[in-house]
């Protein structure tokens, strides 16, 4: 009897019931409880998933509703032109800083990813991956402090030299900054910060290159570089692009490093003199001083919304590229 109990009653019914009728009852009871538990649990899980979608919708909603006063004032009506005049230089500065960061970080990151996946000794490659991940673990404010106190002073003589010898080139025109806290320095710091994400995405995809493709290339007499060119890169192209896009999203939204490193100003083409400002740094520098509910605060939230939309589009393109290539690349 006891043996039969053990085999028929599910674990959820608790300890084995002593006699027939009682056992039936507990089973039915536990079943009712179980059905309820199942419904409750799946409902909870689904609600949590929906809550995330709602949260993202709320982010867009609250930002747009709070930024209304930047576009419309009761005295002057629509002031979109005024807002654009304010926002455009900031968008420009953000894009300049991100382009510098991408231009510096992307080649190095792809090189590092190749080093880890195909060049480093296999035993060491794991720990080398950890070392690169350490770069991602350092908080952004520490990068900002480093860029401000160490990198910027070190760049001053370089900027002066660039100005004296390449001053005819618009990027190096203008007065070189005496503190070195320019958009180029900020771009270099941003490059360091986005390096790990591009590296890790590219590394993941490089590792997944089919071994057979690589070995076939090598067996045909290809050198290692030719093998990488013929087998690895075609396979990994989408992954590299999406890694770069993710890095771009990071660079666009990075706040503290720029806020600390850059001494901002009006939009200029010169990379070596003070000037330019990025959206996140502008918000961080001015938001604490702006009064709650003031027009200035609405303006800052409005450029935050602009930044949100830009990064959203960049990230969506990156994710779309990944998901589009998922099915036939085996990279999932």
């Amino acid at each position: 009897m006891a043996h039969a109990n053990e085999t028929t009653s599910p674990p959820s019914a608790g300890p084995a019931a002593p006699s027939g009728p009682v056992r039936k009852k507990t089973l039915r009871q536990s079943d009712r409880r179980g059905v309820f538990g199942d419904k409750l649990f799946s409902g909870l899980a689904m609600a949590a998933g929906i809550a995330i979608l709602v949260l993202l919708a709320f982010v867009a909603l609250f930002l747009s509703s709070s930024s209304g006063r930047a576009l419309y004032s009761e005295d002057e009506g629509l002031i979109v032109g005024q807002f654009l005049q304010y926002a455009m230089p900031l968008v420009g500065g953000t894009i300049i800083a991100s382009i510098i960061a991408l231009g510096l970080a992307a080649p190095v990151a792809i090189g590092v990813a190749l080093f880890i996946s195909h060049f480093a000794p296999p035993r060491a490659s794991r720990s080398i991956g950890y070392v690169i991940d350490l770069l991602a673990a350092i908080p952004s404010v520490v990068y900002g402090a480093w860029g401000m106190s160490f990198l910027a002073p070190a760049m001053v003589p370089v900027y002066r030299w660039l100005h004296e010898n390449l001053g005819w080139f618009p990027l190096f025109a203008g007065n070189p900054s005496g503190t070195g806290r320019t958009i180029l320095t900020a771009g270099i710091v941003l490059a360091v910060m986005i390096l790990p994400i591009i590296t890790s995405v590219s590394r993941e995809i490089f590792i997944q290159t089919p071994k057979l493709h690589e070995e076939a290339a090598l067996a045909l007499g290809a050198t290692r570089w030719e093998m990488i060119k013929m087998a690895v890169f075609p396979f990994a192209r989408a992954g590299i692009i999406s890694g770069i896009m993710l890095g771009l999203g990071r660079a666009l939204g990075e706040t503290m490093a720029v806020a600390l490193v850059l001494s901002g100003g009006a939009l200029t083409a010169s990379l070596i003199s003070t000037g330019n400002q990025t959206i996140p740094a502008e918000i961080a520098l001015n938001f604490p001083e702006a009064g709650p509910g003031s027009e200035r605060q609405a303006q800052l939230i409005a450029i935050g919304l602009v930044l949100f939309i830009i990064t959203l589009v960049v990230n969506m393109i990156a994710r779309w590229i990944v998901s589009r290539n998922k099915e036939f690349s085996g990279a999932n």
Partner: peptide
Amino acid sequence: RAITFFVDVMTGIPSIVAGLFAAAATAW
């Protein structure tokens, strides 16, 4: 699929935008 996609997108939200959202939402 929608949740997976938007969770991925959410990883890229600039941190300052998250702060602005929290401030605006709590104030409201």
